[in-house]
Each structure stands twice: as structure tokens, then as C-alpha cells.
Write a protein that binds this DNA or RNA. Structure first.
Lengths: 240, 240
DNA sequence: CGAGCGATTGAAAAGACTCAACCACCGTGG
DNA sequence: CCACGGTGGTTGAGTCTTTTCAATCGCTCG
């Protein structure tokens, strides 16, 4: 149970050393959009960002408010969701360590169209809009990275729309589980049934019944709320 | 029947004068992303773009092929769609005069994830990738416009996902009709039932039954395949 | 004028949702 | 340490929506 141990290590370090981490030490720096920054720019970023420790279920921003900057997840997971007209949440994305958050509405020069809330204890940095824009203006690699990121998300969402519109709930669940494998990597997927249902776009009861089917078919196993994928090929097959 | 006359005028001018239009004379120039170009840049664009007349149902690009540049619709309408695993099309967007097309996958540096096909006779220009990128590199207003456009589309798609995932087919149809009002402006909506069904994400038969309901409720009127919105407030009310 | 494709209708079946009840786990306080 | 309360998870039954399949109708184009 390496991940259980890992979790304690993480929790310990969160409370002790997190909050104002330096980007230099951020394990995700190289793989994310800020990997393109030069030393002086990274120092600029470090000087101007503010980091914060968030408990579970804390809000980063809500639909309708105005973006003042960009969030960068140092450690933790965040759900990004839109509240439908009847009050039901639709999860659009689960953001993880290393992801940037909240730049879409900022660039669109508009109020947030989605809300963001932590799913677990998280350490998250905030970069004010003007500082982020300034970095972009002076670094074409970062700029192109942002454009590429936006475009990639756009094509990804087109696929998401297609799946939501055309597929059965069973297929959609398989698809979402595949997406979540990428977020949770080696760890088991750890979401409430309600959140999972709100990602798949179905009723909680329907979701639970389908999870049961998947379990009986040997595709997944569950331990309380945690879901482990056992048979990826079979899952892929259900999704299509 | 002003639009019928209009149609012949359009058809005439298409065959006579279209193809290699100059951006200077393009009625949509000021309102679209190229409005930011300086004179010399516009001349550069004019010199390097290639325009083409397309008949109905002609293909601009298909899913899986590699983007070589950007399309700019001078006149006409284009459906952008993704083909689901079972071969069913999911329409993501209907692009109209003035819209730029095909830049998402180009920026994502990946193969097209969607296909594009004309819905009517259209005149469409093509700007090679390197020329477009060069323009972007030298014009920060265009660049920021692109970023804003991408971001706006992204937030729009989040709403689309929410609607597809949470709402009944009836609500989704109302929502799509509202989107289409923006595309067709004063003209009646002119799409095949199948295309419309593929936009809403439902079976053609279901779509037809719902259109009938809407007609009986006085929300729309139909004339062969053309749909006219009669009661916008009522339609908005159905959509939510 | 005929062929063919798109539009429409009907009936039956499948899928998904709602509502109501019950269970299980978790942290709290006695 | 254990009982308690509450939240989140699970199950069942009935209902409604939506799909599917089959058949018919009616434009539109050659």
C-alpha cells in the first residue's frame, strides 16, 4: 500500500513546508507551461506569486466572479464545474498537480463561466493577471505554449461533447474513467459517487448500478469510494 | 420573400466575382480577427492567401489529416463535426461568413480532430500556416485576438457540455435553435433534419417529433426544411 | 415523369431517472 | 471504548423519455 504511506508523507509535508513553495523546487515545473521560463523570469514569478494551503472542498473561484489571475496547482486536485440551470453540477475537468487553472475566462476578458473547488488538501499558487500577462509578453515559448494548451483543450472538449451527446451512460462512464486514469495515475480514483455522476452526467443511482456491473465484469474493483481499474482493454472496449 | 431574391443575387455574384476576393473588400474584415491587421499586413495576407469556390457538401478538411493552414469564410456556411465511434456525426459548430476555421488543431500541432464541410455554396480563402504564424508573430493585437477567441470558444463549449450532459432532448433542441439564430440571423434556419439531429445529439425521428411540438406551441414555423423562430422568449424558457 | 433520398408517423422496446427506503462508514462526544 | 447521528452509498420498483425499426409520404433533381 505505497500510496497510503505516500499520503501521510504528503500530508505531513503539506502542513509543514508548503504554502510558499519556490517554483524552482516544484516537481512539476519542467513538465508544465512554466518550464519555458528563463531564470530571471522564474524569479520574477516566485516574487509575485502567492501560495495558499487549501483544505478539502474549499473554493478557488465561482462562476460569475471576475478573474484576477491564474492558479497553479503545486499539489492536490481541483474539480472544475459548471452549475446547470437546475443547480446540478457538471464537472468539466479534474485538475491536478502542475496544472494551470482559470486562464480561459481571464483571456476571454469575461467573468468566470465555471467554478473550481479542491477535492483534497491542496497547495495552490496564485499569479496576478498583470504579472502573468507580462511574462507572456516577454516569452514567446510560454505564449505559444498557452495557445497550444488552449487549442488542445478545445479539441479534447470536442471529443467530450461527442461522447456526451451520442453515447449511452455506460459508455460515458467508461470514457470518464479513462480520463480519470490520466489524472490519478497509479493511485486509485478517489471521487464521491455524486462527483463521478456529475462528471458522467447521470443520476447517482444509475452510476452506482453501472459501477456494480463493471465490478461484476472484472473491469474495476472498489474499496469504499476508491476505484481501481483492473482491465484497461475491456474498459476501452466498453467506451467505444 | 427577400431572402429568395437575395439567394440568387448571392449565387450570381459567387460565380462571377468570388474566388479571389481581396480582404479589403471583404464585408466581414472589420468584425473578424483580421480587423487588427495593418495595411501592409493585409496586403501580405492578400498576396499569400488562396480563395476557392465550394459547392454544397464539399469537404474542407477531414479528421485525421494534418493542418496546413487556416480557412477564412468569405461567404457561406460550414459545419464542423466529429465522427463518433459508430460513424454518427456530432456537429460541434456551424461556421459562417467572417469566421476563421481550422486553427485549433493547427495550434495544437496535431492532426485534425474534426471534419469540416460546406452546407451551401461558399467562397472560402486559405492562408498557409507559415504565413498565418508570421502575421501573428508580428501583430500582438491579432495574437491576443486569437487567444481571446480560443478562450471564448472554450468557455462556450463548457456550457455546451453541461447542456448535453444534463438536459432533456427537448431542452437541448431549444438551446441549439438559439445558437443557430446567431448563425442565420434574419434568415430562416436551413439545415437538414439529420444535421440538426446531429447537432442536438438525438435520433432524427425524435427531433422531428419535437419540432412538431414546438410548431404546435407556436414557438417555430417550418416551410419544408426551413425553420423560423417565432417566439424567442418561449424558446429561451424551454431551454432552461 | 420516375427514382431516390429526406421527412414523417406509429408502435414497441430499451434505457435512464425518480422516489423511497435501507445500509455502512466515519467522526464525535459521552 | 462504544453508542450515536449524519452523510454518503446502495438497492428496488415504477414511470417517463428516448430510441429503434418498419412503413409511408413527398419533395427535388435528372
Amino acid at each position: 500500500m505505497a500510496f497510503l504511506l505516500n499520503r501521510w508523507v504528503k500530508r505531513y509535508s503539506l502542513n509543514q513546508n508548503f504554502r510558499n513553495v519556490s517554483c524552482e523546487n516544484c516537481p512539476k515545473l519542467k513538465s508544465n507551461l512554466f518550464g519555458a521560463l528563463e531564470l530571471s523570469q522564474r524569479e520574477f514569478l516566485d516574487a509575485n506569486k502567492k501560495c495558499n494551503f487549501y483544505k478539502k472542498k474549499q473554493t478557488l473561484f465561482v462562476e460569475g466572479s471576475l478573474p484576477r489571475g491564474v492558479f497553479c496547482i503545486n499539489e492536490g486536485k481541483v474539480k472544475v464545474f459548471k452549475t446547470g440551470d437546475d443547480g446540478k453540477e457538471q464537472i468539466i475537468q479534474i485538475a491536478k498537480s502542475g496544472d494551470l487553472l482559470g486562464f480561459r475566462s481571464m483571456f476571454a476578458q469575461d467573468a468566470y463561466k465555471v467554478s473550481a473547488q479542491t477535492l483534497e488538501e491542496s497547495n495552490i499558487c496564485f499569479i496576478p493577471k498583470e504579472d502573468f500577462v507580462s511574462l507572456m509578453d516577454h516569452n514567446s515559448v510560454l505564449r505559444n505554449g498557452i495557445i497550444k494548451e488552449l487549442s488542445t483543450e478545445l479539441t479534447g472538449q470536442a471529443e467530450f461533447i461527442t461522447n456526451m451527446a451520442q453515447k449511452s451512460v455506460r459508455q460515458r462512464l467508461a470514457f470518464v474513467l479513462i480520463l480519470l486514469m490520466d489524472v490519478y495515475k497509479e493511485e486509485p480514483i478517489n471521487l464521491s459517487r455524486e462527483d463521478l455522476a456529475n462528471f458522467v452526467g447521470t443520476a447517482t443511482e444509475t452510476l452506482i448500478r453501472l459501477l456494480k456491473d463493471f465490478k461484476e465484469e472484472g473491469i474495476i474493483s472498489t474499496e469504499t469510494r476508491k476505484i481501481t481499474i483492473l482491465d484497461v482493454p475491456k474498459l476501452l472496449n466498453v467506451a467505444r
